[in-house]
Amino acid sequence: MSRVAAGDGPATTAGGVGTKTSSPLPRAFAVRADARVTAVADGRGGTAVPLVSGTGPLTPRLTRAAQDGASGEARVTLVGAMSAPLGGDQLTLDVRVEAGARLRMDTVAATLALPGRHGDAASYDIRLTVGEHAQLRWLPGPLISALRSHLHQTIHVDLAPTAHLELRDVSVLGRTGEEPGRLTTGLTVHRCGRPLLDQQLDTGPGAPGWDGGAVLGGHRAVGQLLVVDPDMSHEPAPQCLLGPDAVVTPLEGPGVLVTALGADALAVTPLLRWPPRPAD
């Protein structure tokens, strides 16, 4: 796990969550888990989070009430009470940020995809909906694809015309010195009901051509940062290279995508910043 960047852990943990050092429980069975988070404007310039539900591998906890922060941003952190996703697991997460609310979502640690007993694939489907004048910052730790694991992760985002989004996604293919499992990731973003970004990436054993010179070329970590800001409609972001394996690309719409490849999460995560800065 040493290759994994330390996640942006929460400043505090609420609700009696165990310390971060306790290991998730090992298990020999697949689970279905559904988690839901809804954030709303509290009418006083802050954000309330009236719905935080989910158990087992997907347990969201309110880690910062909006009145604690000057930004009016609430913070919800996903903690895993058991290791997941494991082969065969079906996980869904539905996050809604209603009009005028501001929410940051993150995880206490990296997400580790592990093989199940029967070689089944696991699925992790994330749906993010951001309303008018609302903001979501989706900043989870890296997703690590362990040897012989098989995971399909999809992220569907629906943005209102005035919604703001910051979304970070880092995949690490294999733990240190380990061959990766099979990982397919999808990111589909609609704004005002129209497609803004649609990307799928299929990597690991059995994915044709993934390691060749057109796709990853031997890199073992791929990171993306997507920023959608309605104000970019007036002043499009400039394109720029951040190095030989990282680039900032303005989308056809008020969004910009930073893409970085590297040996591990530590190499790519520092590049995923907006406005962009070269790695320190």
């Binding site: 057109a214 796709v215 290279l241 394996d245 680039v247």
Partner: peptide, 21 residues
């Protein structure tokens, strides 16, 4: 249309920006 493939090639995207310069 929404079901159309969207397979990405990160290196093609990154190097295209470099090559254009």
């Amino acid at each position: 249309i929404d079901a159309l493939p969207a397979a990405a090639a990160p290196l093609l995207e990154i190097t295209a920006e470099d090559h254009a310069t």
